[in-house]
Write a protein that binds this DNA or RNA. Structure first.
Length: 747
DNA sequence: CTCAGTGACACT
DNA sequence: GTGTCACTGAGA
């Protein structure tokens, strides 16, 4: 018997899933000594390189095959539980993502999880260095008493750089000792602070704690207006999970929101939870990943990707602000984190709580039909009253031409700031003006890449495409007719609104909050702090201001254009507008004094605006749900978006057309309809949904078109999509299809 | 004829 | 995802 045969004799065959864009597992020989079980991580040869993979199954009766490669080694990583592996398989199938890519979502953080490099501590040995400079003396003095310090701490204490310490180590005056790795997060105390709950909160909290203790899958919608105390309620559910020795995951839509949350959490549980988002260092994420797997970590608060952490005993998931669009992931695997969280909870036999002041339609329907428990907090905690809403009919009492603030709104702002209170003007449009045209020849500035109007950004002296990001300098003369000083800005953006506000209130301290201003989350946090301290009288903001930030001094909200977004042809336009305006107007009010919101609109009788003004959310939900049901829109019909991309607009469009053609040639139930949401004007086989408004975005250097597939409830839209992708023409390269399923009915 | 750039393809 | 290979067009 040869040595090679000897080696393979008795070897087992394992099926390994590698984190690559492949849907199948690969089989490898595994030395029995490794004792591999499903969920174990292994090092494997893959093509020309070494990769890692996760054992998905161990073949009981391996069929004889030649040419199998052999697992190189076992990786010291926590085992991925059966529950997590099932979830990965499910998600891959549901989102039409290769399973390897789904696996990668769950293991990417572990790629950096080198076993913790020993942290080095420094302490004095007692021996003196050859040359004792004043700086060195300071270091030795600081290190006196046998205490050991982190290098950085010691350097800081001695006010020197770490180089000095290195030199002292070389000369033997300082020694290094290995320290145990720092714990990822401190232990949490479920009884650190006794909760103070109002009766309605108490009822909801009890329902949740019961569900957590039951250790079974149970979804809830926790619905309550801004300030009704939803957080305190779900803190009790977290406390219940902790008392049972379980883990909890809190998902947040925005990084900017986490800071505030962490503070409140620490006040309730004594310590902050582990924080998980793209801003956290890779090294730290790797440790959180391990901490979740070992059970050492009990609560993680984070963004979408936290959903894939390998929790050991997950008892509870919270999805905060469940209606937020930020839960939708679009590049790579595309999934809706809120819905996938529900599925994860099902696999983990955990409770899950979706919270919102303005739930999404699908969640409301699920709650109303009894699939989710429905917990409601009607009043604001501490009896803070709801703001008073007041429409301004722009047809009757609008501002003069070229102005955007109606006299009555201006008056209200003036009174508010005269009382030393804050006013917020809300306009969901970045930049100075959404359209620039030439008064002489009528030329309109359009994006050369995707045909959308270019938005003027006056601060930057630029014209920017909000669709694809294309930017050009704003010229002084018309590029069409050469006329000078003939370019006119049409319509308002926040920058222009700031200009008008400054003219109306020259002495007011005005701040514009817009996501495109430089400085990022850091600056935003600082500015929000300053607002809370009263450093500004008038805040002008885009939808950024709707996202759950606290404005304690705000008493007046002016919605400058409530109609914006209602006519966009997006099937979710009504829902989005209602949510946005509700969140924004809900910011008004201080203490027990009701706030006031003035709403400028050209169509006060529009169902969405009317429902908003009536303050009756029930009315809105009832009418929107009825409408969706009639139109077969989600959640009553299934909508999937195929995102087709190409290296330039023309290629992308060609691919989109080819795919649409393939869709119509595919044998299928006539109940499927494939539509282009704008942008494919003469393709007669394509049903148009909404106006053509160039739905292309430039993402990572590629142009994207969006095609919609609509299928009624019960239809196997995934099977259709799978066939469609298979039938998609692959010639000339670059048909990349991403499926963005609006997932319904997956339970 | 070489070389960088682009895609298609396979990976057990 | 990533390494390899074939093919292309530009330049020596």
């Amino acid at each position: 018997m040869s040595a090679a045969q000897d080696e393979t004799k008795g070897a087992r065959v394992v099926d390994v899933l590698a984190p690559v864009a492949v849907d199948v597992t690969y089989s490898y020989l595994a030395p029995p000594a490794l004792g591999l079980e499903p969920g174990d991580s292994v090092k494997i040869p893959l093509g020309a390189r070494e990769a890692y993979g996760v054992v998905w199954s161990v073949e009981k009766t391996p069929s004889p095959r030649s040419n199998l490669k052999t697992v190189t080694a076992r990786l010291e990583r926590p085992t991925l539980s059966q529950k997590l592996r099932d979830f990965i398989d499910w998600l891959a199938r549901y989102t039409l993502t290769p399973r390897g890519m789904a696996l990668r979502l769950a293991t990417r953080a572990a790629e950096d999880a080198a076993p913790d490099a020993a942290r080095l501590l420094y302490r004095a040995t007692g021996s003196k260095p050859e040359r004792l400079t004043p700086t060195r003396a300071r270091v030795l003095e600081a290190a006196e008493g046998g205490m050991s310090f982190a290098k950085k701490a010691l350097a800081e204490a001695a006010a020197c750089s770490s180089g000095v310490i290195d030199a002292l180590v070389d000369e033997g005056a300082i020694e290094t000792i290995a320290a145990p790795p720092e714990p990822v997060a401190a232990a949490l105390d479920p009884d650190f602070t006794a909760p103070v709950l109002e009766p309605a909160q108490q009822v909801a909290a009890e329902a949740l704690t019961q569900a957590v203790h039951a250790r079974a899958f149970k979804p809830f919608l926790l619905e309550g207006v801004t300030g009704s105390g939803k957080t305190e309620v779900y803190f009790e559910a977290i406390a219940a999970a902790l008392k049972d020795g379980g883990q909890a995951l809190v998902m947040m839509p925005e990084i900017a929101l986490t800071a505030q949350f962490l503070e409140r959490f620490a006040a309730r549980f004594g310590e902050k939870p582990a924080e998980w988002h793209s801003g956290v260092s890779e090294r730290k994420r790797a440790r959180i990943w391990r901490g979740a797997a070992t059970g050492e970590l009990s609560v993680v608060a984070g963004a979408r990707s936290a959903l894939f952490l390998p929790f050991r005993h997950l008892r509870l998931i919270i999805v905060d602000e469940e209606h937020e669009g930020a839960y939708k992931q679009d590049d790579g695997a595309s999934y809706h984190a809120r819905d996938m969280a529900v599925v994860r909870a099902r696999f983990e036999d955990a409770a899950i709580v979706l919270t919102s002041a303005t739930p999404s339609i699908e969640t409301r329907v699920n709650a109303e039909r009894g699939r989710y428990g429905h917990l409601r907090l009607h009043a604001r905690a501490g009896s803070r009253p709801m703001p008073i809403l007041d429409p301004i009919d722009m047809r009757v009492e609008g501002p003069q031409r070229g102005r955007w603030i109606a006299p009555r709104l201006a008056l209200a702002v003036g009174e508010t700031i005269a009382r030393g209170e804050q006013a917020l003007l809300f306009l969901n449009r970045r930049g100075y003006a959404p359209l620039t045209l030439c008064r002489d020849c009528g030329h309109r500035f359009r994006c050369t890449q995707c045909d959308a109007w270019l938005v003027e950004h006056r601060f930057r002296r630029a014209l920017v495409c909000h669709h694809c990001g294309h930017t050009e300098r704003r010229p002084d003369t018309c590029p069409e007719c050469g006329a000078e000083d003939a370019l006119a800005a049409c319509g308002p953006g926040v920058e222009r609104l700031a200009e008008e506000t400054a003219t109306l209130f020259p002495d007011a301290r005005i701040l514009v909050l817009s996501s495109d201003f430089p400085g990022g989350a850091e600056r935003l946090r600082r500015e929000l702090d300053e607002i809370a301290k009263g450093a500004f009288d008038i805040v002008i903001g885009t939808q950024l201001v709707a996202k759950g930030h606290n404005f304690p001094l705000l008493t007046l909200v002016g919605v400058v254009d409530a109609d914006l977004g209602l006519g966009s042809g997006d099937p979710r336009a009504a829902e989005r507008t209602f949510q946005l305006l509700n969140q924004v107007t809900g910011r008004a009010g201080r203490g027990d004094k009701p706030g006031r919101a003035l709403i400028q609109t050209f169509q006060p009788e529009h169902p969405v605006i009317a429902a908003l003004l009536s303050g009756d959310a029930e009315k809105f939900y009832a009418q929107e749900i009825a409408l969706r049901e009639r139109a077969g829109l989600p959640p009553f019909g299934r909508l999937a978006a195929l995102i087709v991309s190409g290296k330039d607009a023309a290629t992308a469009e060609a691919h989109a057309r080819a795919l649409a053609r393939a869709a119509h040639e595919l044998p299928r139930s006539p109940r499927y309809r494939v539509a282009a949401l704008g942008g494919l004007p003469d393709a007669d086989e394509i049903m148009m949904l909404g106006p053509a408004e160039a739905p292309i975005g430039l993402i990572r250097g590629r142009f994207r078109y969006r095609l919609l597939v609509k299928a009624p409830r019960g239809a196997d839209v995934q099977a259709f999509l799978r066939d469609l992708i298979a039938a998609a023409p692959k010639e000339r390269g670059g048909v990349r299809v991403q499926i963005d399923v609006d997932p319904q009915n997956f339970m």
